[in-house]
Each structure stands twice: as C-alpha cells, then as structure tokens.
Design a protein around this nucleic acid. Structure first.
Length: 886
DNA sequence: AGGATCACG
DNA sequence: ACGTACGTGATCCTA
C-alpha cells in the first residue's frame, strides 16, 4: 500500500527557524531551521514509513495570485538573512536524504501539494500533507490527512475531515470560505475587516459559503450588514486567494517521488558539514562519535595487551615507551571518583591495567613506579581528575606532559562538549563508544569487566595518542603553546595540590550558626503565615506568587516565563505595600544561608580529614576563569554581615597557624588601563588614587573634596558597566536612573576616557574581523554571533568582545601568580599552603614563623605576576579564620 | 531536566 | 524600535 508524504517546505522551514534558538556551525553558517526541518523529516520517515515523499517550495516572488491582487503577501517582513542562507542548505540536505523536491515558477508550494493530493484522491492512495498553514485543511479528504505543526515544530496535530468538522463545524472546502470572510494578515489577505474567526464561523454555520453570506446580507443586522455589503468584493477576492489551485501543470510524475531510503555515507557527510553530531549519533551513521563495540574493534589498528599477561619488566618497558595514557575514574566529583583502570599506548600496542591490577602485588610495582615517575611523560585526557582519583588511593601522578582536555578547552573554551568521543569526532578520527553506552548512567551504571572494559580503555588511549599531535599543532597555530605549556598545564598540578590539601572547616561554628538561623526562620515563617492568613510553601515561587499577587493583590512588577516574578528586585519595590514583603526577603536570606552554606557545607566535610575539598574546574568558563564545585568555595558570603559569619568556620588545619589572604585591588580596571592605553586611567593607577573617586572627579568635573558618596557610587557603577561592556539600558537599570541620563553619563565618561572608548570600538571591530578576541596571554574566545542580524545576539557578542579580554586577562594574571607562588613555596621550602582561589583573591594557611615573610612575599609575587603599564596591587590580610582575614 | 532565585568576583 | 549589564554553582520547586 502506497503512502505519500507531501511537505510544505517554505512553511516548515519558517516554523523551524522561529521555533529554534540560533545555531551555527563553526563556519558561521546558520543551521537552526535546517536542523528543525531534519528532525521533523526523521520523525516522518520513522512514523509514516512513506513510499513517496516530496518537499514542495514556493518559486520566486510573483505567483498567479499576484495577478489581480498585487499586495498578496505584501507587508511581510523580509526574510531574515539567517534564514535565507538556509534554503540552499535545506535543498542540498534533501538531496542527501534522497527525498524529491519540487518548485514551479508562478506557483506556491500549496498548489503543488494540492495538485498531488488531488492525484492521491483520484488514485485512492493515502497521503499526509505536512504544513504549518491552516489553509491546507481544505485539502483534507478520505484519503488525505493534514498534519499541522503546533507549538513550534515539536508536535503536529492531524486533521481528517471528521476532525475538521469537530473543531470548526465545517467541511474541508469551507476552510476557503472561512479565509474569505476573516482574511489572513500574514498573507495580507483582507477578508471582511472586523470579521474574525468567531463571526466568520457563525456566518458559515448559518449560510454555508461566502457567496451565500453575500446573497443573504440583507438578513444581517446593523453594523454586520454594513460591513458585509461594503466589502463584498474583498470577501470574494480573499476567497479566491485562499483557494489552493489543484491543477498545476506538474512536470514531475508521482512515481518520481518514490522514496527509497537514504545512503548512510552521503547523509553522514552532509550532517558532518552541518555539524549535526547528535543526529549522526542517533542514526548511527558512519563516523558517529559513538559506534558499537564491534565497529570499534573492526576499525582498530592496535593490539590490546592485558597488564596481567606481562611480567613485571615487560610491563615496565611498555609503560616507559608509551605515547599516551587514559586513566578512567567514574563519578563527577574526582575526590569520590571510582578508579576503574588505565590504558597506555606504545605505538600500536596498548596495555590495559584494571583497578585490581593496580592493587595487585605483582603488577602494582611497575604501574605505580611509572605513574609516580616524573621523568616518564604522561600525555592524557583530564589528568587533573586522574591525579585526584589516584591521589586518594595513595598514588601520585607525576610527569604530566600534555592534556587533551586542557588543549581542547584552550582551542575553543565555549565548545559545549569536550568529551573524548566528541573531541575525536571533531578531529575526524575514527569513532569510539561513548561512556554512557559502555557504562550506562545514573542508577543503571554498571562497569563492565574483562574485554569490554579493556577494549574501551584501549580505544580511548588510542584516541588520545592520535589527538595529541593534532591538538599540539592547533595550539601552535593559535599561538597558545606557551599558554598551554607554561601556564595551564602547570596550573592543573597546582590546583590538584590545593584540592587534595583541602581547607579545614569547623563544624561547631556552622552548627551554632545553623541553630540560630533555625530560630529566625521559624519566627519568619509564622509571621509570614499570619500576614498571608494561610500556610503555604514560601519556597515555591508559584505559591508565593498566588499569595502576593492574588490573595493580597499586590501589583505585578515583572513576569517570568512561568508566572509572576518574586525575585529580590521585585520584592524591594513591593515593600511599601505590605509588611509581608520584608519578612519574605529576610526569610529568603536566612534559608539561603541555612540550606546552601550551613547544611550544604556540613555535608561536604570529609569525615576522615575534617576538611572540604573543592574541585576547581579549569575547562568550563569561557573567559579563562576557574570554577569551583563540590562545594563551590568561590561564592561563600561576604557582602552581608549575617552571611559573612560563615567564613568563621574556615580555619587553619594546624594549631597556631593563620589564614592569610591577598586580593588584587581593581585588577580588571588596571587591565583595562593597560590594554586600552588610556593615559588618564593609567595616571590614576600610577598615582594609586581611588579609581572611583577619580572617575567621579573627571566625569563630573569637580575636585576630590567635592566628590560626595553618591557621585562616587555612580562613578563606580559606570566603571563596572565599562568592564561588562556598557549599555545605557544596563546602567540605567543598575543606578535606577533614566536611560537618557545613563546615556549622558556614558557619553561624559567616554569624553574623558578617550582611550577606553577607542578600545571598545576597536575590540568590537577586531572581533568582527577575526571572529574572536584574545587576552594578553593569547587565550582565545570565538564570537560568531558578532555578525548576527538579530540585535540581541549581536549586542551580547559585542559586550562579550569588550569584557572577555578584561576578565580573561585578569584570570591569566592570577593563574600566573598561582604557578609562581607554588614555585616560590617549593624553592624556599616553606610550609605555607595555598588553599583557595576566588578570582582575584588567594587564600593560604601559614605557620606562625612564616607569617611575617608571607605577608610581604605573597603580594610581591602577585604584583609581579605580569608586567603591565600600570602597577598591580595586592592587599594582604590575616587572622584565625577566613572571616578575620579581612 | 529546567526554571527561578541568589551566593560570589 | 529592538531590550541586557560579564562570568560562575547550589538549592528548591515543578513539570
């Protein structure tokens, strides 16, 4: 039995374009609409199993409908270039699929589909018409079903004549009359002005057609009659325009629409060009990042050797000769990760050792000996994590020489997936299985034994071996070899050391604070319930919204996607209306401290060490900053006193020692002064004046003693804005002033700091030209959206272009300081330990006899980390805990 | 799984 | 006219 699927190409690609977020491949080609179209095609192929398939397109701008009504489809926004560039891509994709496509000058896609669906009717063949356009419903019949997209393109709704009758009370052909009466703004079909769907349906249920309505206009009352009578011609013309022409002189015969399946290689090549990796995976096409074990084995050029099959010296020799290593540790938190095993490739021979081998009396000697030998270079993937997982087993990992993950991050820090499977696919190497495929995930995580595991680890070691030279070459091309070798790679080792060391947390401090918070929270809860006149879950934005905006009738200030916004900014505006608002703000503050910082932190204290061991992630932030997890120690409260007390729980791990902290003063603005070369700003830092006061003096044109607190506050906000990539809207929002005033501020600022203005202009132009921006140490971030026609996307990219070199260079500097400081501590054999990094601050624990030295040494190292045209300044402080070090 | 909220620089 | 400040992670709730 034949089954035809007829797709309205123009309609679906439009829907897909607006339904999906922007998406580009690395060449900058927009692909979101094509992607959406493809997912729809795949679903249709799977669900409908068509024997014939056609995608019809509109041809050219002028159709027969324009004869007689020139304004047909007039007033439409012109197709955005991000979409137009996708039409030829879609057509090429259809060829790769082996799906027929057709367009004919002077006709629209609807007409082609209308004609084919008539043929389907005549032949008694089942057909499915796919479109986003309701007009298509007129084609429905016993043989023809219409599928209309709903909510973007994720769902379709099917209509046969019965369903059309149920929904509209109309026969399929009456859809044309419906359009004739109500018109269609998107096609600029006028209909009868003032007649919408409701009225049109009422009229049709009564009279049956446009002609009948016009003939009986005299029966209508008042305004309605007037409208119908004056717009008779319009109604008839609209009906004509809405009628799908079903006699198109097709040059294509239905048997040319036969769909015989796609060629996997052809489709894979097309998907690769478009970078539709997930689809390559889903269809298991050639070159998928993940393939099945048999395919990996078949493609393998290497030999897998079990460590247990070798004697000690043979194993040691193989390890010593290895080019790459892959060390597997499963679990997100490396401090708790389970070490599964490792594989080391020496040319085409790969030795695999399991966890048991590592613990084996005979094998552990050579294995540990090699891992701990700093003269035996390790080229691997995510060796930072491996170092921690091994470290907790009492095995040191030394001799880290290259890390594919780190290199991939430097090459493109915004790439969403840096998994090994994704990396090798990106570099066109032969595929391996994904970890999820081999190990499962979540509750179904099962680590296989024997050959299955050995083969997977070997495949990874082989992948790393092939990747290393490619990545190294690309780093070289991007001038990032030095950044990799001398900064990021040594830093990975420094970080692992800090993380293993951990920081002592005194649970008694937290518990006492927790008890106090508990009392406050229950008091606030009962007060809030009393004001609300009911009990509810204050933590639920939904329930809170109902109480505030429905029960208490407070004004709605801002909406979210899901309902009423109740964030702090909104609540502060609502404070005058009800006392409950203040209570909620207080409640929020206390519960945040309780759940995230008291309870959350207590859970992270390790029983065996009494410390928390964070994990600094080096390959996450697009700007080059670190991030911190399990727990995050980079967002411990400080701004409000209530929260700041949490810091009293962070103490030295040895009696008599102190916590010593040093933070860079205004590092981002100093970096800006340097890279912009702005003379006035440089002078300010060279003279070590208060930058916000100086900014206020210059922008307001007053002397130092004329700068009041408010002027300084505003100047400070402008300085922040400058670093973030300023806009008048953002500044006005932040300062609570009008956009005009904010714009005036910015103009005054740029009039004074001309070098800064020039920098901002130049960096955006440079990003547009090169496609990326860099930091002082050549760290790179690509900004493809800087060329977007969408204002939002483009503006965001422009602000990022301004901000990333500043934030990123500041990150470079503190990373340099960390590596240098680590070296200094080693050289001078000091016992002081680096514990934490918080973007512009370093925290140490120091013994009493090193305190005086460290108080001068640490800021010296930080200030001399990188030589800029302005001095760097670090302020140092110390105490018995992190709170006191202020 | 994703949104809302809020902690930090 | 457009509508946002830059970069993160943890917790809770809701679908």
């Amino acid at each position: 039995m034949d089954k035809w699927v007829l797709i309205d190409g123009n309609s679906i690609i439009y829907r897909a374009f607006f339904a999906l977020p922007p998406l580009t491949n690395s060449a900058g080609l927009h692909t979101n609409a094509v992607f959406g179209f493809t997912t729809m095609l795949l679903r249709l192929l799977e669900e409908e199993k068509p024997t014939h398939m056609l995608v019809a397109f509109d041809a050219g701008k002028v159709t027969f409908r324009h004869e007689g009504y020139e304004d047909y489809k007039g007033g439409r926004e012109k197709t955005p270039p991000e979409l137009s560039e996708q039409f030829p891509v879609l057509k090429e994709l259809l060829r790769s699929f082996g799906i027929a496509q057709y367009e004919l000058a002077g006709y629209e896609a609807d007409d082609i589909i209308g004609t084919l669906s008539r043929l389907a009717d005549e032949r008694g063949v089942e057909a499915l018409v796919v479109s986003g356009d309701k007009d298509m419903l007129q084609l429905a019949s016993d043989h023809v079903t219409i599928a209309l997209t709903r909510k973007g393109i994720s769902e379709v709704e099917r209509y046969d004549p019965a369903e059309i009758n149920e929904k509209y009370g109309l026969k399929p052909l009456q859809i044309i009359d419906l359009k004739g009466l109500m018109g269609d703004t998107s096609d600029n079909i006028p209909g009868i002005p003032g007649v919408g769907e409701k009225t049109a349906l009422k009229l049709l249920h009564e009279y049956g057609s446009v002609e009948a309505v016009l003939a009986n206009a005299a029966e209508l009352k008042g305004k309605m009659r007037e409208k119908v009578e004056t717009h008779q011609d319009s109604a008839l013309m609209s009906k004509k325009l809405a009628t799908i022409f079903r006699e198109v002189p097709l040059e294509k015969q239905p048997d040319e629409l036969t769909y015989g399946g796609y060629d996997a290689q052809t489709l894979a090549d097309m998907f690769r060009k478009l970078e539709f990796k997930s689809l390559i995976e889903r269809l298991e096409l050639p070159g998928a990042a993940s393939v099945d074990a048999a395919a990996v084995a078949a493609a393998a050029t290497y030999e897998v050797v079990a460590a247990g099959s070798l004697d000690g010296p043979a194993l040691a020799a193989m390890l010593a000769a290895s080019d790459s290593v892959y060390i597997e540790a499963i679990g997100d938190n490396p401090h708790q990760a389970r070490l599964i095993g490792l594989a080391a490739a020496s040319g085409e021979r790969i030795v695999v050792a399991t966890y048991d081998d590592l613990m084996d009396e005979k094998l552990s000697g050579p294995l540990r000996g090699w891992l701990e030998d700093e003269h035996a270079p390790k080229r691997g993937y995510d060796l930072h994590k491996a170092e921690l997982a091994l470290g907790w087993l009492g095995i040191a990992l030394r001799g880290i020489a290259f890390d594919a993950l780190l290199a991939a991050y430097l090459l493109d820090p915004t790439e969403s997936s840096q998994t090994l499977a994704a990396l090798i696919q990106r570099h066109g190497l032969s595929a391996i299985q994904t970890d999820e495929a081999v190990y499962g995930k979540g509750a179904r995580l099962v680590v296989p034994q024997g050959d299955v595991l050995a083969n997977h680890l070997a495949a990874k070691a082989d992948a790393v071996r092939r990747l290393v030279p490619l990545l190294a070459e690309q780093l070289e091309q991007g001038h990032m070899t030095k950044l990799n070798d001398e900064l990021e790679l040594p830093l990975a080792v420094v970080l692992a050391g800090m993380e293993k060391q951990g920081i002592q947390v005194n649970p008694a401090v937290l518990e006492e604070l927790g008890a106090e918070l508990e009392r406050g929270i229950s008091q606030y809860m009962s007060d809030i319930y009393a004001h609300a006149g009911m009990e509810f879950n204050i933590n639920s934005p939904k329930q809170l919204g109902e109480v505030l905006f429905e029960k208490l009738g407070l004004p709605v200030i801002k909406k979210t996607k899901t309902g009423h916004s109740t964030d702090a900014e909104v609540l502060e505006k609502l404070e005058p209306y009800s006392e409950i608002v203040k209570l909620i703000l207080q409640y929020r503050q206390l519960t945040k401290l309780q759940s995230t910082y008291v309870e959350g932190l207590l859970k992270e204290i390790r029983r065996d060490t009494g410390k928390v061991h964070t994990y600094y992630r080096q390959t996450i932030a697009a700007t080059g900053r670190l991030s911190s997890q399990f727990p995050n120690l980079q967002n411990i409260p400080i701004r409000l006193e209530e929260g700041r007390r949490i810091r009293k729980a962070f103490v030295p791990s040895e009696p008599g020692w102190s916590i010593l902290a040093a933070d860079y003063s205004q590092i981002e603005l100093r970096v800006l002064a340097h890279i912009s070369g702005d003379e006035r700003m440089k002078e300010a830092f060279i003279a070590d004046t208060d930058i916000h006061t100086k900014t206020a003096m210059d922008v307001f044109g007053v002397s130092a003693d004329e700068v009041d607190a408010n002027m300084r506050r505003q100047a400070k906000a402008v300085n922040f804005g400058i670093v973030y990539g300023i806009s008048d809207f953002g500044l006005s929002n932040n300062l609570g002033i009008s956009r005009k005033d904010a714009a005036r501020f910015i103009e005054q600022y740029f009039a004074v700091f001309e070098g800064v203005r020039a920098y901002m202009d130049n960096i955006v132009a440079q990003a547009r030209r090169d496609g990326y921006v860099t930091t002082l140490l050549e760290r790179r971030r690509y900004l493809p959206e800087i060329k977007a026609s969408n204002f939002n996307l483009r503006s965001f990219a422009e602000r990022t272009a301004m901000n990333t070199p500043i934030q990123g260079t500041a990150a470079d500097i503190i990373k340099l300081a960390m590596v240098k400081m680590d070296g200094v501590l080693r050289e001078r054999k000091l016992r002081s330990r680096m514990l934490l990094q918080v973007h512009d601050e370093l925290v140490f624990e120091v013994p009493a006899d090193e305190l005086e030295l460290m108080k001068t040494l640490l800021p010296e190292v930080m200030e001399s980390a990188l030589k800029l045209d302005v001095p760097l300044r670090a302020d140092v402080s110390f105490g018995d805990n992190w709170y006191e070090a202020k």
